[in-house]
Design a protein around this nucleic acid. Structure first.
Length: 274
DNA sequence: TTATGTTTTCCTGTTT
DNA sequence: AAAACAGGAAAACATA
């Protein structure tokens, strides 16, 4: 009412996420990860096809799953395409191994983005800590191995492609995904990463998919940041949310302000997806 | 270039 | 009274 909304949000978010100059040394961050690491090697979206396949091989090894149990041809794509696959796409492409791969790539997108941005340009501005580097702007979030070590399940980083197979046909796994995430996926990803969600949105009923906005305007600002739109507001964000009712991506929860519920067409939010 | 899908913007009215 | 909720309309944008 009295203070500038944006200024208030800025300080609030910066306060919650920590200041950029508090992050640990990059070498510390990368130690135990892999030896020399070029920014692009740590960012899956820049992987070549060979690197994608090497990543696949390593994840399979790591989980002691026979690599022949998944059709590598389904991953005949570069890192950029890989990163745009949805949870369902992974299921379609790799069946029961899909969730493992999805988890792995999600982790890598996170850490890769952070490492990459720390090296390239430490931005003082707050930004969206989610796996999408398709927007300009930095990220002050710090990867702190002490708090959430790189998942046991993930983080092989291809360095020397040695997998050679003849891939015949491209077999596209996905249909559309307008570069990056949709609003509902953005919301979902905040919920799914509680360590990096400083009280923005909270699960109300985890198994039912009910959640509530705690800081509606802050979420709107973040969304705007991601879309490179400074004038995003909760008012406008919520209009987009309401369109999801018809598509059954969200279900109506009436009587409760700022409360929404994932619908049958929302994927990837459950603890265990079929 | 057109067609489509997904917001974004704006607005009027209602509800909490 | 302020903040949310509801949707209609139409513009804006990105991708297929």
């Amino acid at each position: 009412m009295s203070t500038t909304p944006t200024a208030a949000l800025d300080s609030q978010l910066i306060a919650t996420w920590g200041l950029p100059n508090t992050y640990p040394d990059v070498p510390t961050v990368m130690s135990g990860y892999t030896g020399r690491l070029w920014p692009h090697d740590s960012q899956p979206q820049f992987w070549s096809k060979f690197q994608v396949w090497e990543w696949l091989q390593q994840v399979m090894d790591m989980h002691q799953i026979d690599a022949s149990s998944i059709p590598f041809q389904n991953f005949d794509m570069d890192g950029h395409q890989l990163c745009s696959l949805s949870y369902q796409d992974f299921i379609r492409a790799a069946g029961s191994v899909g969730p493992i791969l999805f988890h792995s790539i999600t982790e890598l997108k996170w850490s890769g983005q952070e490492i990459g941005q720390l090296e390239i340009k430490p931005d003082l501005d707050f930004s969206c800590p989610f796996p999408d580097v398709s927007y300009p702007g930095g990220n002050l979030e710090i990867y702190n191995p002490a708090i959430y070590p790189l998942a046991p399940v993930a983080s092989p980083t291809p360095s020397s492609p040695d997998i050679k197979r003849t891939y015949s046909r491209p077999h596209q796994v996905k249909k559309h995904n307008p570069r990056g995430t949709h609003l509902w996926e953005f919301i979902r990803d905040i919920l799914l990463n509680p360590e990096r969600n400083p009280g923005l949105i909270k699960w109300e009923d985890r198994t039912e998919g009910v959640f509530r906005f705690l800081k509606s305007e802050a979420v709107a600002q973040l969304w705007g940041k991601k879309k490179n739109n400074t004038s995003m507001t909760y008012e406008k964000l919520s209009r987009a949310m309401r369109y999801y009712y018809k598509r059954e991506i969200l279900e109506r929860v009436d009587g409760r302000r700022l409360v929404y519920k994932f619908g049958r067409n929302a994927r990837g939010w459950r603890e265990s997806e079929t």
